[in-house]
Amino acid sequence: MTLSREERLAAWLDGELTGDDLTAFQAELAADPELAALAEEWKANDSLIAGAFAPVAEAPIDQAMLERLGLAERLAPLPANDNSPWWKRHALPLGGAIAASLVAILVVAPRSSGDARDPLSRALDETPSLAQADLPDGRKITPMLTAQAADGRWCREFGDGSSIALACRADKGSWIIEAKGKGAAPVDNAEFAVASGADDSALNAAQAHLKLADPVSAEAEQALIAKKWGGHSSK
């Protein structure tokens, strides 16, 4: 594909030039002050425009708007940069304030090894929300809520640091991590990149595609633990 000078410049600005094309264009840029000046001008214009529109995606979508859009049923507003998605805010039988303070002291989300009965899965099987479980490798995890996904799986949000994660229980009793987020730390991200998996937006995205129901009560959770999550697992 033969590109014009302007097309190459645009592709360079958008990070779409790679390999030899990139090297060649950088040399061209270094050798051509006029092109370099145009590059600066275009770059400044791009950031002016992208910066000007960034706040539009940060503004909260209010309840009235959701109602107008026919999206309000059972959904609370989801501001772009709000760190507590509706399913958490509504969440807790446990109380939002308690959950928030817990999130604040938690540190790093563990990774599921994928092993059928890894220690994390056992801990998630047996630990009630707001209790802490010690893993053999020294991590401490605290489940925060339990809710059922639309596909019937049980899912739990837990943290072990400033990070929180959402895991769902597969048939064989292993808990698969669906998403991880940064916990209560502010997400200063104008992009609100749900799909890129950044921070809490990853949890929001997981929540959206799992379509979690309201979290269960402490008693119901206790019963699930007692029954080893039986009778309600997938499909």
């Binding site: 995606a57 959904l75 772009a80 749900v194 929001n204």
Partner: peptide, 12 residues
């Protein structure tokens, strides 16, 4: 609906 709510800020 739930998924749409999540992408609304960017759609807006």
């Amino acid at each position: 609906r739930t998924a749409i709510v999540a992408v609304l800020p960017r759609l807006r």
